[in-house]
Structures are given as C-alpha cells and as structure tokens.
C-alpha cells in the first residue's frame, strides 16, 4: 500500500471514529476512511476538536469523478501529533452537494471554490461560492470526465486557425 509516513492507516482511524460514532463508517482501506455524507460535517468537526486526533489543519480538499458518482477526498493533519488523516465521501452525481468545511477551516474556502468551479459540486453553507478560475457563464465543468458531452461545452479549435485550407498565409 502507498502511505506517506505520517498517514494514519485507515483501519486505525476507523476504530477511533467508531469508538465515538457507531455505524458512521461506510468502508475503509489502508489509504482512506469513507464516511456517510450525513455524518461528514459532524465527524470532521469532532476530529478538529478531539484532543487525541487534533486535526488542526486542512491539508488538501479535492474531488474525483468516478463516472457514476463523485468522491470528495479530504486530508486533515495534526501538526502537534504529526499525523495525516485521509477521509473520503461519495456523493450523488446528478445533484452533487456536500456541506462546506469553510466554517471550520478558513483554508477550505478557496479549495472548495476550486472544486465547485471545475466539478460543479455545490457546497452548502459556503460563505462565498463563486467560480474561481473560469468566468461566470462558462459552460460545463471541465474536470468532469464527460465534459465534452455537456450542454454548450466548447471543445476548442480542431487545429490552429492558419492550418485551415486556403489560409496558409497568416
């Protein structure tokens, strides 16, 4: 298995969570612990405040398109205990929505805006949910695997403009 040296194996983390919240873990491997979406915010808040886990910093938040669903991957870390925790949540692909972590971690604000922009996942209770890299009105969300099939999606030019026939001279 591929774990960084600080990463807490999924089995250990799932035991810690299970001791406080029974029946909230969907699944786990060495790499991650999968939470149910309805407990997601509650457990992250508990992890931030619990003395043993002490997840004081949000290291990384991103999404993955799994074709039939979206996965949100959250990496939390404790600087004092030198630990990294990897959390995963699977959300519905048709109307993707998940609670925002911005009220717990200031650092979630920009990362959630990035996921909203590129995946079209809605973060409820986000203070400032706007597109970040692309402009308002851009059709579709490019990091989805079916981006080119989305309505009004612009696939770009098939070739450089001056390569068209009869237009060789620039």
């Amino acid at each position: 298995m591929v774990l960084g040296s600080l990463q807490v194996p999924g089995k250990d983390l799932s035991e810690l969570i299970n001791n406080s919240f029974a029946d909230t873990i969907q699944n786990y491997t060495e790499d991650w612990v999968e939470l149910k979406i309805e407990n997601y915010l509650q457990i992250i808040e508990w992890m931030q405040n619990d003395k043993n886990i002490d997840a004081a910093q949000l290291s990384n938040l991103t999404a993955v398109d799994m074709l039939d669903s979206f996965e949100i991957h959250v990496h939390l870390q404790s600087l004092d205990k030198q630990k990294l925790y990897s959390i995963k949540v699977i959300i519905d692909r048709d109307a993707p929505s998940i609670p925002s972590l911005s009220n717990l971690y200031l650092g979630a604000n920009l990362q959630e805006r990035e996921v909203y922009d590129l995946f079209g996942i809605n973060f409820t209770d986000h203070p400032d949910l706007r597109r970040i890299f692309l402009w308002d009105g851009f059709a579709g969300h490019p990091l989805r695997k079916d981006f080119l099939q989305m309505e009004n999606a612009n696939p770009g030019l098939p070739r450089f403009p001056f390569e068209e026939e009869g237009k060789q001279e620039r």
Partner: peptide, 26 residues
Amino acid sequence: DAINASLSGPALRGSGVPWDLRKAEP
C-alpha cells in the same frame, strides 16, 4: 489563524510554527 487557514512554508513558519515537511515527513 495560520494553521486554521492551511498556510504552509515561510508564511506558516513566520508565525512561529516550526512545521517543515523535510523534518516532519522526510
């Protein structure tokens, strides 16, 4: 604030948090 806002590198260490991944996770 630096920890809560996910700051890292000199921006975090400037606030007195001795966190360097070369030491923490070599």
